[in-house]
C-alpha cells in the first residue's frame, strides 16, 4: 500500500458516495447513464471473482462495497427512480465496448484460465466504461454540478493509480503493463472532462460544453 493507491481508493469510495447521495436526496437518477453503471457492475463482478478464494481485510471489504453499491445503484435506477431515467439520451452502443474488451481479454491474458481472462476483460472494460456517461453529458451539453463531481472523483481514482504503479515499479514490487496501459487510456478519456471541470465547475460556473 502507498499513499497514491490509498488516495485513489478513497476517491473511488467518494465517487460512489456522491452518486448514491445525489440519487437518494434528489430522488432522481437524471443525468446518470444506466449503461455506464451496468458496465461497472460487470467490471466488479468479473474482476472480484477471487473473493471466493482469497481474503485480505482491506481488499475484500472494498470489493464487497464496490459490488454491493454498484448493484444498489442499478436497483435504484431500475426500481424506485426508473421514471426519472431517460433511455433516449443514453444511447451509447455498449456492445462494442464489451466486444472489444472480450476480444482483447481472449487474445492477451497473462494466463488462459477463466479467472485470468475475466480479470483481463474487467481491466479493459473498466478503461472504457465511463464512455456512455461522457457521451450522455456531451449529448445534453450540460450536467448538474453534483454529477460532474461524481465523474471527477471516479476519474481521479484511476489517475491516482498511475503514480501508484510508477512507485511500485521503482520499488520493483509490481510491473503489470496491462493494468498500466488500460489505466492510462482510462485517464486520457477523462482528460477533456477534467479540463472543463477545472476551468468551469471549480470556478463556480455551471458545467456546460463550449
Amino acid at each position: 500500500m502507498n499513499i497514491f493507491r490509498l488516495a485513489g481508493d478513497l476517491f473511488h469510495l467518494i465517487s460512489i458516495f456522491i452518486l448514491i447521495h445525489k440519487m437518494t436526496t434528489s430522488k432522481s437518477c437524471s443525468g446518470i447513464s444506466f449503461k455506464s453503471q451496468a458496465l461497472y457492475l460487470l467490471v466488479y463482478v468479473t474482476r472480484y471473482l477471487d473473493l471466493f478464494w482469497t481474503f485480505a481485510l482491506y481488499n475484500s471489504t472494498m470489493k464487497i462495497i464496490f459490488i454491493g453499491s454498484s448493484a444498489y445503484v442499478l436497483h435504484l435506477m431500475t426500481g424506485p427512480f426508473k421514471p426519472t431515467h431517460d433511455p433516449n439520451i443514453d444511447t451509447f452502443k455498449v456492445r462494442y465496448l464489451i466486444g472489444g474488451a472480450a476480444i482483447l481479454a481472449l487474445l492477451f491474458p497473462y494466463k488462459w484460465t477463466p479467472a485470468e481472462v475475466l480479470w483481463t476483460f474487467s481491466i479493459w472494460l473498466e478503461s472504457v466504461a465511463i464512455l456512455p456517461q461522457l457521451f450522455m453529458v456531451q449529448r445534453t451539453g450540460a450536467a448538474e454540478t453534483i454529477t460532474t463531481h461524481y465523474i471527477f472523483a471516479l476519474g481521479a481514482y484511476r489517475a491516482l493509480y498511475i503514480p501508484n504503479w510508477i512507485y511500485r515499479y521503482l520499488t520493483s514490487t509490481f510491473w503489470d503493463p496491462l493494468s498500466i496501459i488500460a489505466g492510462v487510456i482510462q485517464t486520457v478519456l477523462y482528460s477533456d472532462f477534467f479540463y472543463i471541470y477545472y476551468t468551469k465547475v471549480l470556478q463556480g460556473r455551471k458545467f456546460e460544453l463550449p
Binding site: 493507491r5 473511488h12 509490481f174 510491473w175 503493463p177
Partner: peptide, 10 residues
C-alpha cells in the same frame, strides 16, 4: 516480473 500481477489492487 512482467505479467506477475499479485492481484492485490482494486
Amino acid at each position: 516480473k512482467v505479467g506477475v500481477n499479485p492481484k492485490d489492487e482494486l
